[in-house]
Design a protein around this nucleic acid. Structure first.
Length: 800
RNA sequence: GCCGCGGUGGUGGAAUGGUAUACACGAAGGCCUUAAGAGCCUUUGUCUUCAAAAGACGUGAGCGUUCGAGUCGCUCCCGCGGCACCA
């Protein structure tokens, strides 16, 4: 009677034993080649979701594989522990955010340790601890020193529910990324980071040195939104007012007949002062300013505007251009002022509505091609020195001419805005600045760091920062004059925390700086970075920004922090919907483990779909994966090595090869499929593989199913040392005596033939066998033909 | 509108330009069993056919390149994701 596969019995034992044996202890001083495997640090929401497991399992498989392949693998873990949900939960449950967060970390860590990851928890980094956030403050001061952190008053995205500003990257469809509240525009004074200064450096080249998905690179480039064009200098008629407009389509400049200016533009007031239209314009501007960003966007289909009563001179020699305040002109794009023409749909519609004069400067080649379409087709007319010339061939020349004539200059316009980092909330890193009535804004001296986040505050939102409610904390002496001053009561955006955490992982207790430079030199850049697609525009962009900033400071020697980026998909509920408590379709990892064991859950998460995929949890498929492990268990229970079957041996070698390359390419699903195939063959001939071979099979399964393989390795194979420290099987040279190749007639497969290895290169001999056999013979009889032969691959007869 | 990624059986999904549908799920039939479950075996793209043999068709549509296309090129259609009155 053989033993049944009952993982619950041994999985717990191995967790304890591994801990005792220090299996997963990372040695930073090892001489082996390093491999830094990183997964985005999770937020401390409280409960470990099956999505966390999905995100971590494939990386864990890769990390284990790398360890068995002789690397010194660093696979750390930490928590993104600051942020609003903690504060909101605290308000709701009347518990302090810190206590809530730390309790959650404990729960999550306990759950995580059950899965059997090779994470070494001694390197755990928690962003809400002083030992971490003090270095946020240090980095902030460096940014401030370099002029990259500045205080600005600006119209900002404001979330009324969370009582805080939001960066553009934190807005999803006009709503707050955390709470879903509609974002409004509000003038707020706050801290910004000048990420725009790094815009050019953050643009991905076409063929980057690092391996990041095209979608991420395109998305970030899009967001940075670099546009090449010209800035045109303008003078208002009868007024001492100058302004500039941006144009990305220089060929249309001769067609422009009017000017549109954004309602919020500071020049509007000066322009309309004293005109007959002044009152009307002011009413319009006021109306526009009252609307939320979302309303503005919704209404923008209807072009609206008011004539200012003013004109601008046209540097291209056209008639004077009427200046209109228009709702479609956006303050934060270009200069906020637009030259408008008939060649743009939007400008055209507006002009038609208000009966503004238009003109065309392009003879269209294709009469059906719309007048308004952007593009560089057609022949110019009434375009100064370029009349009669083709648009597409003259764009550069037009720009040169504009520069030469001093009408304007070359200019690059960027879509990306500076990163708003201050949050008017409690649970975050205090901004290390002091406001002195006499000396103004003063940086907290480095030696006075950290500025501790006080425990005692009133963090219920009432429009002013919670930190300001702790008077003892708030009032300090000015570091410069010693007089009474106040601390900055704002906290940093949590994306600040996660923009450099992988460096802190390397030595979380390090006290001489934000991170240990020697370790960073040895272990960074990160070799592979796993995470969610939702961080394309936020987190990973900020992390790249910080990396480049650190390089400028001389702290790092590389431009990109991760050599490879892999983005995971989402595990949906069994009903195909996103898991949510309200839909009742949440899969609890703990109960899945209780039913099948960790190995099965791990294997299933790898097998169910590609890592990048998104799809539903299936109780049936996980049962199938469990069957596979049971069969593995069973074949080793009755295992006895006898003969070494040549076919099985070759199959095993091919399986090892496939699994090795699939793991490297994070294609865990096909790696598992290959092992299933091998087992199918093996079961037909259980004695056909040597002991050595069966051990190799266990080894390649080990990264996926660490428990069952260890159990068999040590208790059936009687090995002394852990399978996870064994050397990954090397490929043996295999010689197949016979190979099968398909035979085609006119490109259609009609037969397969077996040929011996030594015949492969002998085309004549292969042809002879193929032509004489089976259906092929019938097709070829009485015909003349030629052949295409790819040695060892395929033979194709083409009838002439 | 722009950018990116996709479209393959009943389902999840495999296929360095070389036997399309691996592997798994589901389904059908069988063995075992008093029975259920589990397990094992067989079948499973569509059509012609009682069946077999054989053949035709077949990777969103249509062209093209090629001895050979799911894969490469062009023109579309559809889906997903991101950005967007972007001047």
């Amino acid at each position: 009677m053989k033993n049944k596969y009952q993982p619950a019995e041994f999985e717990k034992n191995w967790l304890e034993k591994w801990k005792k044996e220090k299996l997963n202890v990372f040695d930073p001083n090892s001489d082996k080649k390093k491999y830094y495997s990183l997964v985005e640090l999770p937020y401390t929401s409280g409960d470990l979701h099956i999505g966390h497991w999905f995100a971590f399992t494939a990386p864990d498989v890769l990390s284990r594989f790398k360890r068995m392949s002789g690397f010194n693998v660093f696979f750390p873990m930490g928590y993104d522990a600051f942020g609003l949900p903690a504060e909101n939960a605290a308000i709701k449950h009347k518990i302090h955010p810190k206590d809530w967060t730390m309790k959650n970390i404990e729960t999550m860590t306990n759950q995580f340790q059950q899965v059997g990851t090779m994470i070494d928890w001694d390197w755990m980094t928690i962003t809400c601890l002083q030992e971490y956030y003090r270095w946020n403050q240090w980095i902030f001061l460096k940014l401030y020193e370099k002029g990259l952190a500045y205080r600005g008053k600006a119209m900002s995205n404001w979330c009324e529910r969370d009582q805080t500003v939001l960066a553009n990257e934190n807005i999803e469809n006009g709503r707050c990324w955390r709470c879903g509240e509609v974002v409004v525009q509000k003038e707020v004074e706050q801290w910004f980071l000048k990420i725009t200064e790094y815009a050019e450096k953050l643009i991905w080249p076409e063929n980057p040195q690092v391996d990041w998905p095209a979608a991420v690179r395109a998305g970030q480039n899009n967001w940075i939104g670099k546009k090449e064009g010209v800035l045109i200098k303008h003078k208002a008629k009868d007024l001492n007012i100058e302004f500039e407009t941006f144009s990305a389509f220089p060929a249309w400049l001769w067609a422009d007949t009017y000017i549109a200016i954004a309602p919020e533009h500071p020049l509007v007031e000066r322009l309309v002062a004293g005109t007959a239209q002044e009152k009307e314009v002011k009413i319009f501007v006021k109306k526009m300013k009252q609307k939320t960003a979302e309303q503005r966007l919704k209404e923008i289909d209807t072009k609206e505007g008011v004539f200012t009563g003013r004109y601008a001179r046209d540097p291209f020699g056209g008639e004077d251009m009427p200046i209109w305040v228009a709702n479609f002109a956006l303050m934060d794009f270009g200069t906020g002022i637009i030259r408008c023409s008939a060649h743009d749909t939007r400008d055209y519609e507006f002009a038609k509505k208000y009966k503004i004069k238009l003109k065309e400067v392009v003879d269209r080649i294709d009469p059906d091609y719309p007048i308004s379409a952007h593009g560089n087709r057609g022949v110019l007319k009434n375009s100064g020195p370029f009349a009669g010339k083709k648009v597409e061939e003259n764009i550069e020349k037009i720009v040169d001419w504009i520069v030469k004539e001093k009408i304007g200059k070359r200019h690059f316009n960027y879509h990306i805005r500076d990163w708003s980092i201050s949050r008017q909330r409690y649970w975050g890193t205090p901004v290390p600045m002091i406001h002195c009535p006499k000396d103004g804004m003063i940086a907290v001296p480095y030696e006075n760091l950290p500025v501790e986040l006080p425990y005692e505050v009133d963090f219920t939102p009432h429009g002013k920062p919670p930190l300001a409610t702790n008077a003892k904390w708030l009032h300090v002496k000015c570091p410069k004059c010693g007089g009474a001053a106040k601390r900055d009561a704002e906290t940093l955006d949590t994306f600040f925390d996660s923009a450099w955490y992988w460096l802190r992982y390397l030595n979380p207790k390090y006290e001489k700086g934000p991170f240990d430079l020697k370790r960073a030199e040895k272990f960074t850049p990160v070799d592979i970075y796993f995470g969610g697609a939702e961080h394309t525009l936020g987190h990973t962009l900020y992390a790249r920004f910080f990396t480049k900033f650190f390089k400028n400071l001389g702290l790092l020697d590389h431009d990109e922090f991760a050599l490879k980026r892999v983005q995971h998909g989402i595990v949906l509920g069994p009903d195909g919907n996103k898991m949510s408590k309200s839909k009742g379709n949440v899969i609890n990892p703990d109960s899945a483990v209780a039913e099948y064991g960790s190995d099965t859950v791990r294997l299933y998460l790898c097998f169910m779909m590609p890592y990048e995929g998104t799809g539903p949890w299936s109780d049936q498929t996980i049962a199938g994966v469990n069957r596979f492990l049971t069969r593995v268990w069973n074949i080793f229970q009755s295992y006895s090595s006898s003969s070494n079957d040549k076919k099985l041996f070759i199959k095993l070698q091919k399986t090892i090869k496939k699994v090795t390359s699939d793991i490297k390419n994070i294609k865990m699903n096909t790696a598992i499929a290959a092992m299933m195939e091998f087992l199918n063959d093996w079961e037909r001939n259980p004695g056909g593989i040597s002991k050595d071979g069966s051990k190799k099979f266990l080894q390649i399964l080990a990264p996926f199913a660490p428990f069952i393989t260890e159990e068999i390795w040590r208790n059936v194979m009687k090995e002394k040392q852990s399978i996870h420290l064994s050397d990954w099987p090397k490929l043996e040279r295999i010689i197949e005596e016979e190979i099968v190749i398909p035979v085609q007639v006119n490109g259609k497969v009609r037969n397969t033939i077996k040929i011996s290895q030594d015949m492969i290169k002998d085309q004549k001999a292969v042809e002879k066998i193929a032509a004489a056999e089976g259906k092929v013979k019938k097709y070829l009889t009485g015909k003349t033909y030629k052949t295409i032969y790819v040695p060892g691959k395929i033979l194709n007869f083409i009838l002439l």
